Amino acid sequence: MELYLIRHGIAQEATGDIKDEERRLTKEGQQKTEKVAQRLKKLGLQFDLIATSPLVRAKQTADILIAAKLSSQIEECIHLSPDGQIYNWVVDWLEPRNFAPDTQLALVGHEPCLSRWAEILVWGEVKERLVLKKAGMIGVKVPETGSPLGRGQMFWLTPPKYLL
Results as ranks from 00 to 15, higher is better:
residue 91 V to F: 15
residue 164 L to F: 14
residue 134 K to T: 07
residue 147 S to M: 09
residue 147 S to V: 12
residue 126 V to S: 11
residue 155 F to G: 04
residue 144 E to F: 08
residue 148 P to D: 02
residue 24 R to D: 11
residue 6 I to F: 05
residue 142 V to Q: 03
residue 101 P to Y: 05
residue 76 E to V: 14
residue 17 D to M: 13
residue 53 S to D: 05
residue 146 G to F: 04
residue 80 L to N: 00
residue 127 K to Y: 07
residue 157 L to T: 10
residue 55 L to C: 03
residue 100 A to P: 11
residue 37 A to Q: 06
residue 106 A to F: 04
residue 34 E to C: 12
residue 45 L to F: 14
residue 159 P to Y: 06
residue 14 A to V: 13
residue 116 R to H: 14
residue 145 T to D: 09
residue 69 K to G: 10
residue 162 Y to S: 14
residue 49 L to P: 02
residue 15 T to L: 11
residue 148 P to H: 03
residue 44 G to H: 04
residue 14 A to W: 15
residue 87 Y to D: 15
residue 11 A to R: 08
residue 122 V to Q: 00
residue 17 D to H: 15
residue 24 R to P: 01
residue 67 A to K: 10
residue 31 Q to W: 12
residue 37 A to S: 09
residue 106 A to I: 06
residue 130 L to Y: 04
residue 139 G to H: 02
residue 49 L to N: 05
residue 19 K to W: 14
residue 68 A to M: 07
residue 103 T to H: 04
residue 92 D to A: 13
residue 135 A to E: 06
residue 132 L to Q: 01
residue 115 S to P: 06
residue 139 G to I: 02
residue 95 E to R: 14
residue 162 Y to G: 10
residue 52 T to D: 07
residue 35 K to G: 12
residue 83 D to E: 12
residue 140 V to Q: 00
residue 33 T to G: 03
residue 54 P to I: 00
residue 20 D to K: 09
residue 20 D to H: 14
residue 126 V to Q: 12
residue 104 Q to F: 09
residue 56 V to C: 02
residue 120 I to T: 03
residue 54 P to M: 03
residue 143 P to D: 04
residue 135 A to T: 11
residue 59 K to R: 12
residue 130 L to F: 10
residue 131 V to Y: 14
residue 57 R to G: 02
